[in-house]
Design a binder for these strands. Structure first.
Lengths: 260, 260
DNA sequence: GTTAACAGTTAACACTGTTCACTGAAGCTC
DNA sequence: GAGCTTCAGTGAACAGTGTTAACTGTTAAC
């Protein structure tokens, strides 16, 4: 792989030619190969789907023998676990950057950017998207809290939407359905979550949840091709849906472009 | 496996003890083992998830050697393909039976039963549900139309909802959003699908699609546990959502039970 | 300068899907 | 009923997988 990274080479009273070039501290070298491993794993993921990113395949990709990878990951599962965490963080960073680079003070427009950002990321990286959001393991080990790095990264990702919606609420409280329409049972459950939603009332949390649920389902169906049989290009449908759920949050959404 | 099925044993002038018992025509025996294979496959699916249903594991389950299964399926993929098709058909049958057994003339109530039926099936059979609806292969072989039995069974399944919604429309046409709200682009696409939706106008198709999209996303999220972190029990939320999208279709939904 | 830690290799194990040559019995035809 | 064909099923093998153990050197530390 020959990654001669002489940037951090310390200035030594040179002894021979070889050392003067590639002097890298051990843990720096370790971090480098660790990154290479994950890069190779991702390369395999995008080219051949999640099944293609195997331990041996990754090792082959960087000219190593399979057991060598066990110096970096305790198992194959741990490797893709780390890959998942990385992808979540990348997605989260991309979405947060989307909010800051384009200086839009209007929070509604920000949510619009966020939703479209997630959709675009999914469409541009279907293999990665499938790894993150496809079949989120219906394993029934509810006792040990999912404290895997992947799960934590997923929570950080979810927080992006959650916080923006809470901001919108505190900025311009939107009307929400009356309690008797949701039912006591649901109201009780949502009230319990109020502290995690920055003190929003249950009805408002319900609408936030609806936004997320619809957005999520919509994007999953489009990326996974389950919308294909009726809509070859779901862009316009997505736009309409986004407008619909945006208006439910009291955001004034612009009418369709019709740029045909 | 010793499945001595003497039901169909023809009455013969018996020759010896053995023959008088298990006389089964060859293709009848073949059909029997084929069913046993799929039964074993399903058993493995529910107990260990989709990864557990391997060729060798299935063979082991019924005391056969792995190559024997190749007399019944050309490959491992074909086996789970057949399993998928069977599960789709089972789900479809269960939903259709749900509509006929309970004699409900009201079409809106039928849709309610259907939606709840799908949800319950998913919650009761999470492994099967994951196999059918989780990560629907983002493979990009768009040229060869998916004519696999699994895909065809999926279409039959989808038709159940599609036809009922069309029935509802022709029974009591519901108000739909005006064209300028959806945009020319989307209207054009939906108009194209009108013939597949029994002549419904694009706006009505849009609402039908919205119903399906929301229902699908909702159930997937709940079954796959992605709703767990905010709602331990999503039943009340599902009920509220169902009421919401039911009203969008002009159906008068009953208020929440509040049976606490 | 000796010792310990560590990256990496080789060999092997148990497992997977798949193929090929083969056996034995069931079914069909003359 | 004899002879031939069909076909379910076996045994052995191949290429592939994740994983472990014992073993090399090289690198860092006391």
């Amino acid at each position: 792989m020959l990654t001669v990274n002489s940037v951090h080479s310390k200035v030594l009273p040179y002894r021979d030619v070889k050392e003067s070039f590639e002097v890298e501290s051990r843990d720096r070298r370790r971090a480098a190969t660790l990154a290479e491993i994950k890069a190779a794993a991702r390369r395999l993921l995008v080219s051949g789907g999640s099944t293609a990113v195997g331990l041996r395949a990754v090792a082959r990709e960087l000219g190593l023998t399979p057991p060598a990878l066990y110096r970096y990951f305790p198992s194959h599962d741990a490797l893709i676990g780390a890959l998942i965490a990385d992808l979540y963080d990348e997605l989260t960073a991309a979405l947060m950057q989307l909010q800051t680079t384009e200086e839009v003070p209007d929070l509604g427009e920000r949510l619009y950017l966020l939703a479209n950002g997630l959709r675009n990321w999914g469409l541009e990286h279907p293999a990665e998207f499938a790894l993150l959001f496809g079949t989120a393991v219906p394993i029934a080990d509810a006792d040990d809290h999912d404290e895997t790095p992947g799960h934590q990264a997923a929570m950080r990702f979810g927080a992006v939407f959650k916080e923006l919606v809470a901001q919108i609420w505190h900025w311009k409280p939107f009307p929400y359905p009356p309690d008797e329409l949701l039912g006591k049972e649901l109201i009780a459950q949502l009230t319990e979550e109020s502290e995690h939603f920055q003190g929003m009332p249950p009805g408002a949390i319900y609408l936030s949840l609806t936004y997320w649920t619809r957005l999520y389902g919509l994007i999953c169906m489009e990326v996974f091709g389950q919308l294909h049989w009726v809509l070859p290009d779901a862009a316009a449908y997505f736009e309409a849906q986004l407008r619909e759920i945006g208006e439910a949050l009291g955001l004034d959404c612009p009418p369709p472009d019709d740029k045909t």
